[in-house]
Design a protein around this nucleic acid. Structure first.
Length: 196
DNA sequence: TGGCAGATTTTA
DNA sequence: AAAATCTGCCAA
């Protein structure tokens, strides 16, 4: 239905200032097409990681093998392994070489429920993608997707016409430095957000 | 319901 | 040793 009018987000979307991309990604649809099939969800929670005065940003300590994708052009995927167990999916934003990004923290499942429940080993829709590690499991995102061009790959972001009316701004989760910065954004009242 | 340990890679 | 996490187990 509305998917008929779904449009892939263009390069120019990602080239906006990072905070605009972060808020703009709320309500957009993330789809991953694999050999097993396709799974998709609507983005309901994100966090911004900035170039200036943000020691929590992985790029702030320079380029390494892990975070190299962050220094690529806006619209690149940055996927890293956290705590030796889970993956986190980011969209690279800002000026190429500076290393800003938006962490996608939660999705409202839209399609590919069978795939997602199998990958997540749960039938609870609320548990499928309501966290950064969970959504990577549900969509089968891992280091193989690191560095992909999100405007030209099986991992796509699209606008299906859905609009978000109320965005809550909060502090980021799971960090101990720059923990007071208001760089987390989520859809008010959405049950798939990782935390209120 | 809330707190904590465990899993395990990357980096400092 | 701590990290942009999640889960299961334990005690109240």
């Amino acid at each position: 239905m509305s998917e008929l009018f779904s449009e892939k987000l263009p390069k120019s979307f990602f080239q906006q200032p990072t905070l605009d991309v972060a808020r703009g990604l709320l309500g957009k649809v993330l789809t991953h097409k694999t050999a097993e099939g396709s799974a998709a969800g609507r983005i309901v929670e994100v966090e911004a990681y900035l170039y200036c005065n943000d020691p929590a940003c992985h790029a702030s300590r320079g380029k390494t093998a892990r975070n190299a994708a962050m220094f690529g052009p806006a619209g690149t995927a940055y996927v890293y392994l956290i705590y030796g167990m889970y993956y986190c999916f980011n969209v690279v934003t800002g000026v190429e070489g500076e290393g800003e990004a938006v962490l996608v923290r939660a999705l409202e499942p839209l399609s590919g429920f069978d795939l997602m429940t199998t990958r997540r080993v749960t039938d609870d829709v609320r548990q499928l993608a309501s966290g950064p590690g969970k959504l990577c499991q549900a969509l089968a995102i891992n280091r193989k997707q690191d560095g992909l061009d999100l405007t030209n790959s099986p991992l796509v972001l699209a606008d299906d016409g859905y609009t978000v009316d109320n965005i809550i701004t909060a502090t980021r989760i799971g960090i101990s430095v720059a923990a007071d910065l208001p760089l987390r954004f989520y859809v008010a009242g959405n049950p798939y957000v990782s935390r209120k």
